[in-house]
Design a protein around this nucleic acid. Structure first.
Lengths: 296, 296
DNA sequence: AGGTTACTTTGGGAAAAATCAAACTATGCA
DNA sequence: TGCATAGTTTGATTTTTCCCAAAGTAACCT
């Protein structure tokens, strides 16, 4: 039971099995017979001295240990990718893996340079493999620091140590109101004399502890959604107000289902930034993507 | 030339060869014939697409690429140790590697709990492998942050983000003067009327930019030594004053070669701390060592 | 020139590993 | 009870890896 000679192949088999949630489904993915998978798995389990998953006719599930090993193995492979990136760098080749993380609902942004940057990147010579994730801002930062992501794009009101931020583009967010809401029919004059704090506000879930960029602070407890889409449901219900990116809200505005409240006092601009780990040498692919993004 | 299937054994061969500075010397270390080493090395070089070292009758040296790969491979193996530590943790076994870093000249400290803590650690059940380094404080912190060390002990006047510090013990440092120095023969009263700033002070090299813990600030440019031992040379020369830990200076004081100046005004206490990375889960061995140290 | 050192190349053998088919087991479901 | 599903075990085969000895090469040394 020598752990120094980790068998990377067996770990990879395990990861695939865990992803496919079973031996039989993993068979196709791995291109090996189910008996081989079985042998490899039990061999790995013996080496590690841990049972990694529960399998059989009763269904497939990772054990608690399995979950931890799954994460640790993923980290390990990411670190191996890091080694390979170093090699590609020395070879002056534009190859390697790049893990990107974006805040959600950036695709609809009209002036976002992301699509063009990806286009530029793939037009370059080299074997580039992209892993794309869409996560909430605080998760983005955590995953970046944990080396699970290489480059992230989002709005990061609070800058963390160990991360380099560079402004990329702006997004206007405004306060929206659904057609069933009592304020929907009020005109601008009427609204000016109304205290918006009296109404329930729906907010993004990950803004915990941060002051809201607008000067609006809801008095009554509102609602929280971890996804932009959830906010829209809440606004459409007619019971909540919420800040939404203008480009994102546009389609419901056009259809008359929601409208913007107090454009002058309640709108704000949030700056989207591109961020990468400080301290570590970026791989050639990382450098190329950053360059493509910022040269617009 | 598939890089995804890194051959860890070949990387290990390379590391040993680099450490031994040659194929033939590595033969004994690796317990394989020189022909095997040669094959492995050229195979690795082909895979990586890089020449790693210059060898032959003309002597051995790593190429520039080789240096980089050497470092990257070391990092990779450290990360693999991290994976193994996770496994040991899950198995609830007290096994794994522990990289310690100490400030220099701690061995002579009379009340340092390090020796006992190591004793305790090795008295426990489990396969523990220790890597011990003695470095300057700022290097200690850097290596800790770079994951090359797990636990460090030293005096860290400036606390860095991302590191957890806990006080461990105190050390009294005083200003010392060599027997050839003009101040050596002065008594306490005479010294009280003398401005010490007029004399040249030798300082530790890594204190760059930090205010000296004593209130003494040398006017004339002094001398810098990166090692405690160097300070002693400078003091013994009779041209410099320097702060030294009392326990360290003791033997020269006893032999009459140096003496303490102004014990009341020029001494200060520096606190030695134990520090570990914040954020990451400590391995069982790390936890055991910390516990052994702090339970004294 | 000839010896020595330090590595490379070649060829081959032994051990380890990866793989599969087929038979087997265990469990849920009808 | 019996069928179907999901994985295990076994034994054999193929493939890969690992390694060495011996002969070869290249550079330095005297």
């Amino acid at each position: 039971m020598q752990l120094d000679t980790i068998d990377l192949r067996q770990l990879r088999v395990f990861l695939t099995v865990a992803d496919c949630r079973g031996f039989s489904p993993a068979q196709a993915e791995l291109n090996i017979s189910v008996s081989t998978i079985s042998t490899q798995m039990s061999d790995l389990e013996t080496r590690l001295g841990l049972r990694l998953c529960q399998r059989g006719r009763s269904g497939f599930s990772l054990t608690e240990d399995g979950e931890r090993i799954y994460k640790a193995a993923q980290t390990l492979f990411r670190q191996i990718d890091g080694f390979n990136n170093e090699v590609y760098d020395l070879r002056q080749e534009l190859s390697g893996k790049l893990s990107l993380g974006f805040a959600d609902n950036l695709v609809t942004h009209p002036t976002s340079p992301i699509t063009q940057a990806l286009d530029k990147l793939f037009s370059l010579e080299g074997e580039i493999e992209i892993l794309l994730n869409v996560l909430s801002p605080n998760l983005l930062e955590r995953e970046l620091l944990d080396q699970r992501l290489d480059i992230i794009i989002g709005a990061f009101p609070r800058h963390l140590q160990g991360i380099n931020y560079q402004p990329l583009f702006d997004e206007r967010q405004s306060l929206y109101c659904g057609s069933r809401h009592p304020l929907f029919t009020k005109n601008e004059k009427e609204l000016a004399s109304i205290d918006l704090k009296e109404f329930r506000i729906a907010q993004r879930g990950y803004t915990a502890g941060r002051p809201h960029p607008s000067n609006l602070k809801a008095a009554s407890s509102g609602a929280i959604s971890y996804h932009m889409e959830g906010l829209v449901y809440l606004v459409l219900s007619g019971h909540f107000l919420a800040h939404l990116p203008d480009h994102y809200a546009k389609k419901w505005v056009t259809s008359g289902e929601i409208k913007e409240l107090c454009p002058h006092s309640q709108s704000y601009i949030s700056t989207f930034e591109i961020a990468s780990r400080a301290g570590t040498h970026p791989s050639p692919v990382q450098r190329a993507f950053l360059k493509a993004l910022l040269s617009n």
